[in-house]
Each structure stands twice: as C-alpha cells, then as structure tokens.
Amino acid sequence: MSVTRRGILTAVPIIGAGVLGVGFWRMLSDMRSGAFDPRAIKNPNVGKPIPSFAMPGLPGLGDGFTDAELKAQHRPVLVNFFASWCIPCVAEMPGLRAISRNMPIWGIAYEDKPENASAFIQRDGSPYARVASDRHGRVAIDWGVTGVPESFLVAPGGRIIWHGSAALDPQIYEAEIRPRLAGL
C-alpha cells in the first residue's frame, strides 16, 4: 500500500487516539493499584547521601543530632519531619508509634516552637528514638522537604533510599518501607 496524504490523514488520528487511550488506561489502572500517583512529590535527593546538618534538641527530650550521628547508625533509620501545628502530623502519630516498634524513627520538628513541639510529642508517648529542632526550616530546605509530614528512609552510611510525602501508617510501612529494609 502506498503512502498517500489521505492515508496519513486517516491513520494519524487513529494511532494518536489509540496511543493516548492505552496510556490513559495504564495510568488509571496504575492509579487504582497505587503505582501511579499524579500528585506524588518526587524528592531529588533520593539515592543521594543526606545533607550535612547539626540541630539542637527539644526541651526535655535530650540533645539534637547531626548528619554524622545519623551516618554512623548500623540500622536503617526513618527520618520524619513533623510540626505540632500540622493536622496530618497529629493524625500520623499513632501510625508512627506502631512503626517505631519495628524500626527507629528520628524526628525533626519543622518550623515549630521547641516547647510546643516537645509538649506535642510527649502528650501520648513519643514515637521518636531521637528528636531535633529545625526551628527555621533551614535543614528541611537541604533535604528538599516541601511540607510536613514528610519522611525519609536513611540507610546505614547515610544514603536516602526512600521518600514519602504523606502521613505514614502501618500499611505504607508494610508496602513501601519493609520491602526496602530487606535489601539492606
């Protein structure tokens, strides 16, 4: 069959519509299984080492921590940015407490008054193994945090291997975090 202008005019729309249709179908089915999330926030630091920092602690919750201490860990650590003024963070706390039974979580209070943050996490029992205060959100910028709560899975040695931009719960832990722990 020779290629004619008319042939192109009929073939191109059908092929175009077909490609778009198949793509949309894949997106929709992936959306339902959770593999495709158009609203997901991708963090450019995933796969890279953690940025350097040193943060003070919160009143009554010990000293803060530094990147060196985080890198020196022999187990993977879940780093969680939170704030007492953030409603999803309040909702996330029971989930974090459940996850903290399986692995250590280090908390970073993001743009929060230290006394507020301290009272908030001690109210129903802290899920955090260690807590530090990022009073002005400078450290969060280096980590590429766009809002709270956000969490990072940090491998021993200090490489970020996973990032989540939603409130964590045991389901997300089972689906996203635990499989990644196995390879470490």
């Binding site: 009929t10 073939a11 729309p13 059908i14 519509a17 077909g18 249709g21």
Partner: peptide, 21 residues
Amino acid sequence: ILALLAIVIGGSLALFAWRAP
C-alpha cells in the same frame, strides 16, 4: 469515561477511516 471515549472517539475515527476516501 475512558470506555465512553473509546466508543465515541474510536468509533467516529474508525468510521472516518472507512468512509473518508
């Protein structure tokens, strides 16, 4: 809606390919 679109758009384009010549 995707199924609906497939019928409306796919159907009309197929008709177009068949009858346009």
